[in-house]
Nucleic acid binder design. Structure first.
Length: 617
RNA sequence: GGGCGUGUGGCCUAGCGGAUCAAGGCGAGAGGUUCCUAACCUCUAGAGCGCGGGUUCGAAUCCCGUCACGCCCGCCA
């Protein structure tokens, strides 16, 4: 099937069948794709209309000053170009705006009804076809998804070392990473999600040594009955030993750890299997935890892979030939022009370093994908810069690489650490969130107006959707570069700007549709005349544009901001406009179609954020 | 010490060169349910965007300086 895609593709790098790779769980054979909505063609029309007007007067079209007007202006797009032209044309901005408006033949462009000057601004208004088209496009359950592009992207995220339970400090990575991947998928890219497993470093050697060295009987009870909780006890015990052992014992232990590291480097099969047992066991547990979010992966790429297949050695050979390569202090290093710190890529003992292997890893990514996005913590920024520069020196096109940087989540009392066992585990956060959500659901059962009966399963389902959704939404809705201090009550606030607020809108849509027996939705936007209806429809229309912009910048929090806007608009509509109880049939039918479009929009926006959309709550 | 990032009402967050109210939420105060789920809605008080300069017709948004906080500056990952 992937072969068919390739037949249409131009310059597609991949030569394997993309649909048959292991681990695909989301849309196994088809990507969600929609027609892309009306907003984007409207914007193109505006650009073309304004551009040609400027061209006709031989004015620069570099920056058209297109922007979205403030809320109280009901144009869809505006331009502030008159400010910039004022000097050149020797007229005041409002005068320039008026003249330009006269020259633009708005009606000649698709979806544009007219352009009006308002002071110094040019406001572009959509025609009826824009609204009709939006109402129709919104009936598609994939609304908001853009047409497929022939571009593959690998999104690497989380990649936490398999040392123990996932704690909240790193929880931003899977949550933001999964959302970025979803977002790119909606934007039409062919996305793979990868978890890079650091199974070759000292941490894993220590872990393997500790696992073999200590007896379970001397360890505390695990905090939770799952693999990574059981295993991390050995890791902590081992680190504790290394910190406190007497010199001889320490030396013996270090020798064993060193043997494991050397064994991995030499490609020794037996050593590899010992380490792999530990890595795979811990990883299975972490996978289960991440699955609760859910964050899933197409592939877990192991670091040792690039040692075993010779690609790390191959990179080293090429690195040594680079102009900036120097042999200093018994180690091979690379000097950069723009980065102060050298990159050591080969130790005195001839072994490779993490970054050396990551270079091989990224060359592999660049061979197999058109683009690569990596989600990483701010502490890896320098390393990411060095990686990028080095790849560039090796002759790669690093424009194909992007990274999304986030700050760690800290506790009021400081950092979280797996090794020291400090911090809040993601499992505990999710459990607490679900418990609190269940409490909310049960509290509300009493004064529930709706006469549907929520059985135990429904309560549990809602508690999970709301609880997990609230955690994800709280994290994904903020700019990742901002630091977060974790506080239970703030993370688990179910009111207002939170997942439940948006989820509730979805449930309301479903409620209306459930009541709308016998009403057939009709695509008649002309019946939707009130401000509340027009504003809701206009907000729905923007969705594909929001997806495109957020995807371009890898900023899923913009989708979260959008969900609040559409939720506000929907609630305004809900208050003002009865659907099932509307007076005449045409109104009922048209409003029902609007509700369906709103539901699809909200559901898909939440889907991008990785938040479930409950049908009732 | 150097580099990078962050700093918006009591608290949290959006905006990151343009529209004489800087947008929401929490919290505070006042209201709203014979009508599709009140995890909702309406109204009131509250900031001039860390601080000081500068660029610009116009700055929360750009530049410089400064302060605070975070991260980084390992032959660790």
């Amino acid at each position: 099937m992937g072969v068919i895609v390739l037949a249409f593709g131009t310059g597609v790098v991949n030569t394997f069948d993309r649909s048959e790779r292991p681990g695909r769980t989301r849309y196994p054979y088809t990507r969600r794709s929609g027609n892309g909505g009306m907003f984007r063609p409207f914007r193109e029309s505006v650009e073309a209309a304004l551009g040609s007007a400027l061209e006709a007067r031989e004015l620069s079209t570099d920056d058209l000053g297109i922007e979205e007007p403030p809320e109280d202006v009901d144009a869809v797009l505006a331009s502030s170009i008159a400010f910039r032209l004022a000097g050149e044309l020797g007229a005041a901005p409002p005068e320039v705006a008026a003249r330009l408006a006269d020259e633009i033949d708005a009606a000649g462009y698709e979806y544009v009804d007219r352009v009006e000057p308002t002071g110094p601004y040019l406001n572009f208004f959509p025609d009826e076809a824009y609204f009709e088209g939006t109402l129709e496009a919104g009936q598609d359950s994939a609304y908001g998804a853009l047409p497929p592009k022939d571009t593959s992207i690998v999104v690497e995220h989380t990649s936490a070392n398999p040392t123990g339970p996932v704690h909240v400090g790193r929880a931003r990575n899977p949550i933001v990473g999964d959302a970025v991947a979803n977002l790119l998928e909606y934007a039409g890219y062919d996305v793979d999600r990868h978890y890079y497993v650091n199974d070759a470093g000292r941490q894993m050697a220590v872990f393997t040594w500790a696992y073999e060295r200590f007896e379970e009987s001397e360890l505390p009870e695990p905090a939770r009955d799952r693999a990574e909780y059981r295993m991390v006890r050995y890791y902590r015990r081992g680190n504790d030993f290394l910190e406190n052992a007497d010199p001889e014992a320490l030396e013996a232990a270090e020798a064993e750890i060193e043997t494991i590291l050397q064994g991995l480097e030499a490609g020794d099969e037996e050593t590899y299997e010992r380490v792999t047992e530990v890595v795979d066991t811990v990883l299975a547990g972490m996978k289960a935890c991440l699955g609760r979010l859910p964050a899933t992966f197409d592939e877990f790429i192991k670091e040792t892979r690039f040692m075993r297949d010779g690609s790390t050695d191959d990179v080293v050979v090429r690195l040594k030939e680079l102009h900036g390569a120097v042999y200093e202090n018994d180690a091979w290093q690379l000097e950069f022009e723009d980065i102060e710190k050298n990159l050591v890529f080969l130790r005195a003992d001839g072994t490779s370093l993490y970054t050396t292997r990551d270079l091989a890893h990224h060359e592999w990514k660049l061979e197999n994908y058109d683009r690569a996005v990596t989600v990483l913590g701010e502490d890896h920024k320098l390393q990411a810069r060095q990686l990028r520069s080095t790849l560039s020196l090796l002759g790669h096109d690093t424009d194909r690489l992007d990274s999304v940087i986030y700050s760690y989540v800290n506790l009021p009392e400081g950092k979280m650490s797996t090794r020291r066992g400090t911090g809040v585990q993601l499992d505990d956060l999710l459990d607490e969130a679900i418990d609190r959500a269940r409490g909310e659901v049960e509290d509300r059962l009493g004064d529930r107006l709706r006469s549907d009966d929520l059985d135990e399963n429904a309560v549990e389902r809602i508690a999970r959707q709301v609880g997990v959704g609230a955690v994800r939404y709280d994290i994904v809705s903020k700019q990742p570069t901002k630091a977060i201090t974790f506080e239970w009550d703030r993370a688990l606030d179910f009111e207002a700007q939170s997942a439940p607020y948006v989820q509730y809108v979805h449930a309301r849509c479903c409620g209306i549709e459930g009541e709308a027996d016998g009403i057939e939705p009709t695509l008649d936007a002309s019946v939707l005349e009130t401000d509340a209806e027009r504003e809701l429809l206009a907000t729905i229309a923007r969705f594909p544009g929001v997806v495109e912009g957020a995807a371009d910048e890898h900023e899923p929090h913009r989708i979260a901001t959008y969900t609040r806007e559409i939720a506000d608009r929907f609630n305004g509509f809900y208050r003002e406009c009865p659907v099932v109880g509307a007076d005449d049939e045409r109104t009922r039918s048209a409003r029902l179609a609007l509700v369906i479009a709103a539901r699809h929009t909200v559901a898909n926006a939440l889907d991008i954020l990785g938040v479930e959309a409950p049908e009732s709550m």
